[in-house]
Computed example of a mutant assay.
Amino acid sequence: MVNKNSPLPIYYQIEEEIKRQIDSGELSPGEMLPSEREFAEKYAISRMTVRQAITNLVNEGLLVRQKGRGTFVQRKKIEQELKGLTSFSEQMRSRGMEPSTKLIEFNVVQASERVARALQVNIGSEVYELKRLRLADQMPMALETAYLVQENFPYLNKEVAKGSLYEYVENTIGVSIDYATQTVDASIANKFEADALEISEGDPVLVIHRLAYLSNEKPMEFVKTIYRADRYTFSVDVKR
């Protein structure tokens, strides 16, 4: 309830009411909130006041705006430990979620200096370039751009690229994946990334660059993965 005679600002009262509904289970993770207009009419307040309350809760991470859809109660973030080498599919299945892949591009390109250095091939060598949208329970989670040495993937095609490359390498080709090096950065989504991930342009994202190696010490893939910051958090154990 909103008490207009209270010394507490109305936007703050709206925030606390939404928090109460989330804590009590009246609003469930992933549930869409009423529109600003509905809030304004229900409490006889301005939409600007409602917008301020919702924006504050979005900034706190309790709510999330989805472009063209509305505002939703934030789902619990997926916590990914930065230890052990697992594929996206393995990560999602371990959490009881169903992974899937939308193949955006499948190309053979000439390796740039950076890609060539990472994959230990000559500049201009032909490598596979895959752009893939990774989903969990049909929700976009990550956008990948991967570069692969052609000779390591003799039968790679679009159908194979729609599944787990790690499973393909180990189960079909019969080669073990040994280890990877990776870095994590913070960034903001450009228009292409935002449209693919169904977030707003300028929203925060987490970026991982990974270079994975086969058991024969040859590079397997050089991949840049952009994760939705509202759905992912990374953790690492450290010991003194």
Rank of each mutant, 00 (worst) to 15 (best):
R93K: 15
P219M: 07
G30E: 02
F72T: 03
L143G: 01
R93M: 15
E41H: 00
M139H: 08
E144K: 01
S89G: 15
E60H: 14
S24I: 07
V223Y: 02
E16G: 02
I104P: 01
T71G: 06
S164T: 02
F88L: 15
G124Q: 11
G163I: 05
P204V: 04
M92C: 07
Y11K: 06
I10K: 05
V238K: 00
D230H: 11
P7F: 08
E113L: 06
V184T: 14
S87W: 12
T225Y: 11
D237P: 00
E126L: 08
S94I: 08
Q91M: 14
P7C: 10
S125D: 06
D178T: 12
V207K: 00
L62S: 07
Q110M: 03
L85E: 10
L143M: 04
T55F: 14
V50Q: 02
V160P: 02
K224S: 11
N216W: 10
K224W: 07
Y43E: 01
A136Y: 01
L214V: 09
R132E: 04
F88G: 04
E221H: 05
A40R: 03
R114T: 11
E105T: 14
R132M: 06
K102Y: 15
V184R: 13
E151D: 04
E17L: 11
E36G: 12
E79D: 09
E144L: 00
V184P: 07
E193W: 03
I188H: 13
T71Q: 05
P219K: 04
R75N: 07
S6L: 03
L156Y: 00
K131F: 10
S112L: 11
S215L: 08
V115R: 06
R69Q: 12
K42F: 03
L82N: 14
A196G: 08
L135N: 04
I22S: 01
Y155N: 11
P204Y: 08
E201N: 15
M92T: 03
E159S: 15
L103M: 15
N122Q: 10
R51Q: 13
P219S: 05
E221K: 02
F192V: 12
Y147G: 01
A161D: 11
S24P: 01
T101H: 15
S35M: 09
R240V: 14
F106S: 11
P219G: 06
V169P: 02
V205L: 01
K102E: 15
M92K: 06
R69A: 10
S94C: 11
V58K: 14
I226N: 08
L197D: 04
I188L: 13
Y43A: 03
G124L: 10
Y166T: 05
R228N: 12
Q52F: 14
I104M: 10
G61C: 09
A189T: 06
S6G: 07
G30Q: 03
E31G: 09
G70M: 11
S24G: 04
P7Y: 09
Y232I: 13
M32Q: 15
E217Q: 11
S94G: 14
Q110E: 12
R20G: 01
I22A: 02
E151I: 02
F106H: 08
A136E: 01
A186E: 09
Y179M: 06
T145N: 13
V50P: 05
E17P: 00
E221F: 02
K42E: 10
G61E: 12
E201L: 13
M97C: 02
T225G: 10
M32E: 13
S100T: 06
V175S: 09
V109G: 06
Q150V: 03
V2G: 04
